[in-house]
Design a protein around this nucleic acid. Structure first.
Length: 894
RNA sequence: GCCGUCUUAGCUCAGUGGUAGAGCACACGCUUCACACGCGUGGGGCCACAAGUUCAAAUCUUGUAGACGGCACCA
């Protein structure tokens, strides 16, 4: 069989995924072994509005590597896919669509119609990312795909809500919350980000004190909120203001009289020492208001404009326009003391960057106490979840839990899980999973359901168990019993609090199980400018473009190669490296197949190693060592180490040496040699498969003898595929230190001779003799590999003996096991050779003096481990010998 | 403000208490019959800085500087 000259990724990518999926290879049920252990992962559900970005590509690659590796090891593996309903994002898209296409608002069409439009939108656009995941090669079980608003997941949400309410962990209350005036909904603390603004202003307002001609100056960054002031507070210990406590302010621009109160919260040292108090628009002011029984005057509408309570002159004005107007009017009244530039950090909506308004509002909250303790106990007693990398995530996670505040879970949206709470005319609340149940509780009264929906993260928090069929009813669903706890969660840093922690808590609370044992936290893939990829920076790299340019496999293995847990800058050249690697594998296979007639893969061929040549024993040793190390790396989630091992085994050991050493035999049609190289290649492809699924599947089917024998009893009934072969576990008994040492000696000789050729500027077309002096045991090794040395060193004759016998006009070199001479009568440049030897001597001498300095240190010899000292002594002695030889060679040149 | 991470070859990054690594880039040479997405050879680093622990520190400790991230924020 002949392969194309270069690997063309598209061909392989288009043909295999469909078959894998259709044959049910991704389903755990494929594994018929009743004793098989399970291995499960739930995907962090991407947003239905989303499309694949580099973070997904990285995380999906890691999950797929793990799943494919475990599947090949014979585990019953499940990788469960799904998407979340992304409340605000979808709502915003549909609102926008409605406005553009019909010039209507959600209110125009009503809630039911609006929700129906959302579903339509989801059906139409919501599978972008699932299609992209197929391109990635993600081996997820599509038959178990879940959406957070599926019937059964929604039921789970309602039941969880009701249980938490009944147990007192959910409550409804009037609090200062984060309000996004653009989305017109409340946000949780985690959805608010701080943004530093250098152009902030601190405005000093003079408030007239009743019954005097004095004023009291307060400073504020939000002057418009003065319209909602209901007090001014000063520190009780502040001598300056002691006499003012209890007096009254005539609040400008309003007709209100507000008291001056004393409160410990106020820092006399800061600002003017007097604080305007707006209890309905600031969390700290709210606390002061509570302590002093102040009125909580709400002066804004939910869209950030001022309401009637702000006064007729301000009603309807946007908060920022109102701000300017307040400042101007204070100026006109002569009550504006000054305006200072002030660097300020502002809370902004994570999604739309609108400045968040703290506002008094009645919302639903989850008290986290019980669940927080549950999560902390799990970490303290079992160390679960085990974060990888452990530092710093474990600490940050624990610290966050310890300071956890109540979670605002209601959202003023229509798209999502409507809160299962109903109200009667008197405003009594009835919480139940269904309206019928609520009505029963209410004694049959007419009820109206709460208009808000739940935070999307509330339903994602149930993901680890709601996806396995848990709804809150009696009994344990089979999937839940089988796959929970999941083995590992792979995710980014940004949602450890938002999602990971909540899933741990809710899973523990409702199932009594761990959600997962391990958490692999990936680093952030940064743009080429070293900053996080973002639309506004326009530094994003589209994974799909990379797939098109370099192939899916190259992109995947590159991503795996940078999966250290640290942030990393995206680098096209890195992907190119693995594109080249894919081509290298393709061509190595191509070579093996060129002469494969009559030979086929045969694993029994590697068992009896007694009669094999050094090169064979060496590559089998290297192969098994690599397998052992790759398995170990993957167990530790050290994906980059696994990639590096595979890369160097394949390119250096297999291609550069093994193929070259065996080339003549194979080209000569030696069936045994071909069978052996095919078998080694097949095993190497298996190890690569989790990283490069398409390429390896494509090539594996081209190897003779693979399709009929998958060599994995667990999947023996299934159609042939490399993804169902057995992942090489690595065989300790095949590790052959002697073969590695002997092969190493041969390789060293070849390298030294090649070095001589290059440095002496001898054309590759000129063949020369190579003389080798060595100990008896190594003489045999060199004789056994004479043909290989002849070929790879481009020599015409090899002379091997106890000592080196060579004419004066020779270039010389030494290795640990051999002395080498290359007679170059008429070709040698004596000056160059002297320089070459001198350089070599100096180099070795430097190392030796370093060693000797260490060895002459009595402290070192006494305290360092004996084998360390012995090792250095041996090396020093060896260097001494090599230097002496080179020195001799140098003086022989005259 | 508090907590944390990072600083290694021109670039992007591994690494680790005991002789500094990779890929790319660079230099020189190759129509060597799998591969120029290639082959061969080579040059290149006081491992941010300072002090300490140690027989031994790029690796551990502390501090300094720079980059970044998280958390909390006083009007």
């Amino acid at each position: 069989m002949e392969l194309a000259k270069a690997y063309e990724p598209k061909v392989a990518e288009e043909s295999h995924y469909k078959r894998w999926e259709e044959c049910g290879f991704f389903k755990p049920e494929l594994n018929q072994d009743p004793g098989a252990e399970t291995y499960s992962i739930v995907i962090p559900p991407p947003n239905v509005t989303g499309s694949l970005h580099m973070g997904h590509a990285l995380q999906h690659t890691i999950m797929d590597v793990l799943i494919r590796w475990k599947r090949m090891q014979g585990y019953k593996t499940l990788w469960l896919p799904g998407t979340d309903h992304a409340g605000i994002s979808v709502q915003r898209k549909v609102v926008e669509q409605l406005r553009k296409e019909e010039n209507k608002t959600p209110l125009d069409i009503g809630r039911d119609e609006f929700v129906a439009r959302c579903w339509t939108w989801k059906e139409q656009y919501g599978n972008t990312i699932t299609e992209q995941m197929r391109r990635e090669g993600a081996s997820v079980d599509w038959s178990r795909h879940r959406f957070t608003m599926d019937e059964s997941l929604s039921l789970a949400v309602r039941n969880v809500f009701c249980t938490l309410y009944d147990e007192g962990w959910i409550y409804r209350g009037l609090r200062i919350v984060n309000w996004c005036p653009k989305d017109r909904t409340v946000l949780s603390d985690l959805e608010v980000k701080e943004e530093t603004r250098k152009d902030g202003k601190l405005t000093y307002l003079k408030y007239p004190i009743e019954g005097t001609d004095r004023t009291l100056t307060v400073a504020t960054t939000r002057p418009e909120t003065m319209l909602g002031d209901t007090a001014v507070a000063v520190s009780p210990s502040d001598e300056r203001y002691k006499d003012l406590i209890g007096k009254t302010i005539a609040l400008p621009l309003t007709d209100r009289k507000i008291p001056i109160v004393a409160d410990e919260y106020v820092d006399a040292e800061f600002g003017t020492g007097a604080v305007k108090v707006t209890p309905a628009h600031d969390p700290n002011d709210y606390q002061i208001g509570e302590r002093h029984n102040l009125e909580k005057l709400l002066i804004m509408n939910d869209d950030g404009t001022m309401n009637a309570a702000a006064g007729a002159e301000f009603e309807g004005l946007d908060r920022f326009a109102a701000r300017e107007k307040v400042v101007a009017m204070f100026g006109d009244l002569g009550l504006l003391e000054k305006v200072e530039d002030y660097e300020i950090s502002l809370p902004v909506c994570e999604r739309c960057k609108t400045i968040v308004e703290p506002i008094l509002s009645e919302q639903w909250f989850v008290k986290m106490d019980e669940m927080r303790d549950l999560a902390l106990d799990l970490m303290r007693t079992e160390g679960v979840p085990h974060f990888s990398p452990q530092v710093p995530h474990e600490k940050v996670y624990t610290l966050w839990l310890e300071n956890l505040k109540d979670w605002t879970i209601s959202r003023q949206l229509w798209w999502g899980h409507q809160i299962p709470a109903w109200y009667d005319d008197e405003g009594n609340v009835y919480v139940a999973p269904t309206e019928a149940a609520a009505r029963e509780k209410a004694g049959g009264k007419e009820l109206k359901q709460d208009q808000d929906v739940l935070d999307t993260w509330f339903s994602s928090g149930l993901w680890a168990f709601s996806t396995f069929g848990w709804t809150g009813g009696a009994g344990v669903p089979a999937d839940l019993a089988t796959y929970l706890p999941t083995d590992v969660l792979v995710t980014g840093r940004d949602i450890i609090f938002l999602w990971v922690s909540r899933m741990i808590m809710l899973t523990g609370k409702f199932t009594g199980e761990k959600a997962f044992n391990d958490v692999v936290v990936t680093g952030t893939v940064l743009g080429k400018d070293g900053k996080p990829m973002s639309k506004s920076r326009n530094n994003g790299v589209d994974p799909i473009e990379m797939f098109d340019k370099f192939g899916v496999d190259a992109t995947r293995i590159y991503l795996a190669s940078i999966a250290t847990g640290a942030d990393i800058k995206w680098n096209d050249v890195g992907v190119e490296t693995y594109r080249n690697f894919a081509n290298k594998i393709w061509n190595a296979t191509r070579f093996c197949l060129l002469n494969s007639e009559g030979a086929s893969v045969d694993h029994s061929d590697l068992v009896e190693r007694g009669e094999m040549g050094i090169a064979d024993r060496w590559i089998i040793s290297r192969l098994n060592q690599t397998a052992l190390d790759v398995n170990k790396s993957l167990e530790r989630y050290e994906f980059h180490t696994a990639v590096s091992l595979l890369y160097h085994f394949f390119w250096d050991d297999f291609c550069d040496w093994y193929i070259e050493l065996k080339k003549d035999e194979i080209n000569a049609g030696d069936i045994a040699a071909t069978r052996r190289i095919l078998t080694v290649l097949e095993i190497a492809l298996r190890m690569l498969h989790p990283f490069m699924p398409y390429l390896t599947e494509e090539l594996w089917h081209k190897l003779p003898g693979t399709s009929s024998a998958m060599n994995n009893s667990v999947y023996s009934e299934a159609e042939a595929s490399i993804m169902l072969t057995k992942f090489p576990p690595g065989d300790l008994s095949a590790i052959d230190p002697q073969a590695e040492a002997e092969m190493g000696a041969v390789i060293e000789v070849i390298k030294r001779v090649r070095n001589i050729r290059t440095e002496m500027q001898i054309s590759p077309s000129i063949k020369f003799e190579v003389h080798i002096g060595a100990q008896r045991s190594f003489q045999e090794v060199f004789r056994a590999n004479e043909a290989q040395i002849l070929k790879l060193a481009r020599a015409e004759k090899i002379v091997i003996g106890d000592t080196l016998v060579a004419p004066k006009a020779s270039a010389k070199a030494v290795t640990s096991e051999a002395q080498i001479a290359v007679p170059l009568e008429g070709l040698i440049d004596f000056d160059k050779e002297r320089e070459r030897l001198s350089t070599q001597i100096a180099k070795l001498g430097e190392e030796r003096s370093r060693l000797d300095a260490q060895l002459s240190n009595a402290n070192f010899v006494e305290r360092a481990p004996a084998e360390k000292v012995e090792g250095l002594r041996d090396r020093s002695k060896e260097l001494e010998g090599q230097i002496a030889t080179l020195q001799m060679n140098l003086s022989a040149l005259g």
